[in-house]
Design a protein around this nucleic acid. Structure first.
Length: 421
RNA sequence: GGAGGGAUGCCAGAGCGGCCGAAUGGGGUAGUCUUGAAAACUACUGUGGGGAAACUCACCGGGGGUUCGAAUCCCUCUCCCUCCGCCA
């Protein structure tokens, strides 16, 4: 959510942001509603003020007669203000709903574009391995080594269902432990966070109402979050923090659920795009300061890179174009890992900052040195998501005899150093 | 599943129709004292909206109602606690 004052004074910037992000939103209409709302509010406040004065007089009235005269006047006043209050309620509700749809302004450094085709590579790491034998994709590898069961997965869990078995399960757990250790070393507070969350958490982080289709709703009015960002970011909602507590860095672990509506027909095979997976997420709250947001954005991006470099997976970093930004994101880097069977990089991490877009919605503030209360800034990035990361891990480390070599950093979490038949 | 109790400012906790935007304590900030610190003492200290300011409006978990007037009474929702039952 943006500050309505900012929108009033910078309507053109907001309109431009809508265009850049390909979001259909009528800024002028919002401003109209805002004006209506303020006019009603002003009028109600004047009447309230009169009421308050009259009430004071009733208190001070000497006798019953004086009292009943004032009361009669009050009743008259009330009749008139009833309609106005109903109008105000309607208008301010509409206003609030509209405010949730206003996109944040992309940073100037974000390239223009409409889809991920327009994202720009900003960094490349790792040697792309030249295989001297015909390679297998992760699906073949998984089947040959009995690591993932897709048939029974879809039998039980439907389309995109899967079972992770044997060393794949162990590998998955080892990767989570490894990423946890790296993030804890880098100052993150680990926690297991809820995936089953209420509407406020979803709205506060910006997933609702915008992306309703992509979220599972439960029969009791709750939602299954697509990322622990939702519950971890909401952890401090409605709180006033101390400036000295910032930045706060959390590492959230949770199962994640995504309907993948809108991705019909994409990546239907394998474990790239699934409805249910495990993820470690980096979530950061910091000072209301652009430099600080930018600094921490680079930091959480580096953390993810550190994790990938340890695993020796070649990757590149792209800066997402304006059309590929979420409603609240100011800037986003995707990290994409090299997938040999597809001969391209595929997204495994997504690192973004929001300024106070989320913290306004969630009401997360802090008191600064001067005693002023400000909205914090928020950022988040993937730590590691599994099983998706198993794709580059298995494919890049496959050997001619069909075995898989396990990267050294994972050895201490596992009782095997390779996977073979 | 059944029966009760509760939700108040940064925190703890009083108030149970007008004197309450809210006692008291803790914390925080500033000052006095001190070589410095601690202690003690003094002052200030909720949030949001409007306004240049004076000032004004709203907020005592959320929503609705009663009343001239609600933190206080009624209804409802959410969450927390205690006891009983059931399950792990």
């Amino acid at each position: 959510m943006l500050d309505i004052k900012f929108i009033r004074e910078n309507a053109n910037i907001v309109k431009e942001a809508c265009q850049k992000k390909k979001i259909d939103f009528d800024v002028d209409y919002l401003l109209e509603i805002d004006l209506k709302r303020r006019e009603l509010l002003k009028s109600i406040e004047i009447k309230n003020s009169m009421k308050n004065q009259a009430n004071q007089k009733i208190k001070e009235a000497k006798d019953e007669e004086e009292r009943s005269v004032i009361i009669a006047q009050m009743r008259e006043l009330d009749k008139n203000s009833d309609n106005e209050e109903a109008d105000y309620k309607k208008v301010s509700e509409e206003f609030n709903n509209l405010m949730l749809l206003v996109p944040n302004i992309p940073d100037e450094s974000v390239p223009l574009g409409s889809s991920d085709d327009d994202n720009k590579e900003v960094k490349k790491w790792g040697e792309i391995r030249q295989f001297e034998f015909p390679i297998k994709d992760h699906i073949e590898i998984a089947k040959d080594l009995d690591l993932i069961d897709f048939e029974r997965g879809s039998k039980v869990a439907g389309f995109r269902g899967y079972y992770l078995k044997k060393q794949a399960f162990q590998l998955s757990m080892a990767i989570l432990n490894y990423a946890t250790d790296i993030l804890m070393k880098n100052g993150f507070i680990p926690m297991q966070a809820p995936s089953l969350v209420n509407e406020q958490a979803m709205t506060g982080t910006g997933y609702l109402p915008q992306s309703k289709d992509e979220v599972y709703a439960t029969s009791d009015g709750m939602y299954l979050a697509g990322t622990s960002e939702v519950s971890v970011m909401s952890y401090h909602s409605d709180e006033i923090l101390k400036e000295s507590d910032l930045p706060i860095k959390y590492m959230g672990f949770s199962p994640c659920f995504r309907t993948e509506i809108g991705s019909y027909g994409k990546d239907t095979q394998g474990i790239l795009r699934v409805h249910e997976f495990m993820k470690i997420e980096q979530v950061v709250l910091c000072l209301n300061d652009k430099e600080e947001s930018v600094r921490l954005h680079e930091e959480i991006t580096r953390n993810a890179e550190e994790i990938l470099q340890g695993l020796n997976i070649p990757y590149h970093v792209v800066v997402n174009c304006t059309g590929d930004l979420g409603l609240g994101q100011v800037k986003k880097y995707d990290i994409e890992c090299w997938v040999p069977s597809q001969e391209k990089y595929r997204e495994t991490h997504s690192s973004s900052y929001f300024f106070d877009f989320q913290t306004r919605r969630l009401n997360i503030r802090y008191k600064d040195k001067n005693g002023d209360i400000k909205f914090a800034h928020s950022l988040n990035n993937t730590g590691i998501a599994t099983p998706r990361i198993l794709i580059p891990l298995l494919e890049n480390n496959q050997n001619e005899d069909g075995s898989i070599t396990i990267p050294e950093v994972l050895h201490k979490y596992l009782n095997f150093k390779e996977i073979k038949k």
